[in-house]
Every structure is written in structure tokens, then in C-alpha cells.
Design a protein around this nucleic acid. Sequence first.
DNA 1: TATTGTTATACTCTATAACTATA
DNA 2: TATAGTTATAGAGTATAACAATA
Lengths: 165, 165
Amino acid sequence: MGERAGGKGAAAEGAGERAARPDLAAMIVPLGRALMAAEQPILDAHGLAMWAYAVLLRLDTTPIRSQAALAEAIGADKTRIIAVLDDLDARGLIHRRPDPDDRRVRLLSLTPEGRRLRDAVQADIQRGEEELLAQFPAAERDGFVRVLRALSAGASATPRGTASG
Amino acid sequence: MGERAGGKGAAAEGAGERAARPDLAAMIVPLGRALMAAEQPILDAHGLAMWAYAVLLRLDTTPIRSQAALAEAIGADKTRIIAVLDDLDARGLIHRRPDPDDRRVRLLSLTPEGRRLRDAVQADIQRGEEELLAQFPAAERDGFVRVLRALSAGASATPRGTASG
DNA sequence: TATTGTTATACTCTATAACTATA
DNA sequence: TATAGTTATAGAGTATAACAATA
């Protein structure tokens, strides 16, 4: 890999050059872990597991027509969310019934109670997040969220299979 | 990002209110996964595992005096990095020798070759990241990296044990 | 035969416990 | 006795394979 010479940024030019900033992944991955850890007590207080919350979030966005589609949408394995759906169903937070048109697939939707719980939990979580962001100037904060949203949207477009499939 | 009704947080006040943005964790965690996936081919090309790269990065920052300290610094378990250190040592990328003052602890440092490899890999990785960021206006990009650095620094300050530790 | 959901199994990653050596 | 490192073991999380129901 010899020449990183003429390039634009040339993050590490000479032998002992240090990079101008840490790698994005090296910052984002631990930060993600920390944010999840911060969410955990809130989820615990509501008796929701992390994947269960992800399901409630996704169902609220758009009704989904099969469990496999839901699983893929939240980046989970289809076998992994079954127990989650069992629990949510038993607690009356979601509807899960066979599609009359094709009784193999399950129609998944949120019950009013599920929506209420989702809203309450998300309000709690985002309240904490806003406190975290409040320490920054509005312009930086705004740029952060804007870029994050765009990168996140782009990332979820390439969930697993990648380009070559 | 928009002023919501009256109260401070109140992200979702009424019943049907949708949040103004996705949860930070819901964006950051999948993004972290995607970034790691993007790094993987680069690491593979250099024969480095993810944790090995983390070790090289951390050793370059500051020489470390014990494996346990290194493990904690990169958010790993002390037992998990042993095989990693074995490999890096065998390949001549790090020095690992007993401290003469206390022969229980190992002094860990980067060899010149290890530094070269680290620089090469990081240059590759950050080149890709810069391409990713290039799509955004400089101001947003700047705010993003700035806030990210601050949040990341704050997060690593609370690695595991948390307050009551 | 193909597909959805489900269950059972195996694998990977990570954390805990037990052991060796130094102090 | 206490600590750093190592090894062995067990656990959580995840993915793969086999199965039943429906088309």
C-alpha cells in the first residue's frame, strides 16, 4: 500500500504522524454501548427488553406484514424476535394474527396500549439524550444530529448482504 | 431540531405524538455496526483482527504498564486480549516483557513495525471515512465530529462500573 | 415445490472461576 | 495475603439447520 502521498487529507503522512482524529468507528461503537447502557434502566423500569423496544419503535413507524420483514428492518435475525413477539403479544402490546389472504404470514401492529408504552419510554429516553446534547452549542448539535441521521439512513440501506450480495 | 410544546423535554406529550427524531442510540448503534463492517475488509487485508487493531491504536497513544490496564482502556476483558497480545508479539508488532521492578506486570509497547502497520491501516480506514463525510457541508461535518469526539470522551469516562462501582 | 413461522442445534463471543508466578 | 497474568470453564447472544403449516 505504499503511496498515501499526494492525497487530499493524508491523515498519516510520515512514519510517526498521528491521525488528526480517532477513527469514527472507534468513537461511535463505544458511544453506542454507553447510550444503550444509559437506556437500560429506563427499559427495565418499563419491563421492556432492548429488542422489544426496537420492535415497538418499528411497528409504530409502519405496520409490517411479516415477522421476517420486521426482523430485517430492525437488523435482527427472524428466529431471534419470536420470543420477543410472544411476550409483547401476551402482554397485549401488539397484535399478531394470520393474514386472511395468506395464512402463513402474520400481520403485526401496535395496540393502543403498546403505543402508549412506546411513547412513554421514548419520551424518557429522549429526555436524557436531550440533556446530553444540551451541553453543545445549537449549531454543533444540529450538525451532529443532521449528519447522524443521514449516515444512519445510509447505513441501514446496507444491512448485511453488502454490495455483491 | 425543533421546539416542542411547552415543557422542557416532553418529546411525546399527547397520545399519538411522534418523536421529532429517532433515538440517538437507535441511530448510533447500527451505524457503528456498519462502520465496523466497512473496516473489516481493510483489517483482513492486513491480517489484523478488530481487537488487535484496537490494541495497536491504544498502545500508540500511550505506552501502558499492564495488560489489565490496556484491556480496560479499550473496553475489553483482560482475559480476552491475551491471545491477541500473543499474536501481535509473535509477529513482532509489539514488545511485551516483564517489568524489572515488578516482574508480575508486563510492559507493553509498539515496535517500529507495529507503528508502521497501525499507521497504514488507520490511513486506509480514515480515507474511507473521509469519503463518507465528504458528502456533507463543512460546517455540519465539523459539528458532527466535534460533538462526537466530546460524547465519545465522556462515554469512555464511564466504562462499566458506573457511579456506584 | 416454495415460503412463513417455529423449534432445536451449534457456534461465537464474552465473562467468571480456578491456577501459577511473583510480591 | 494480595496482585498480574494465564488457562479452563460456563454463560449469553447469535446464527444455522431441521420441522410443521400453508400456499
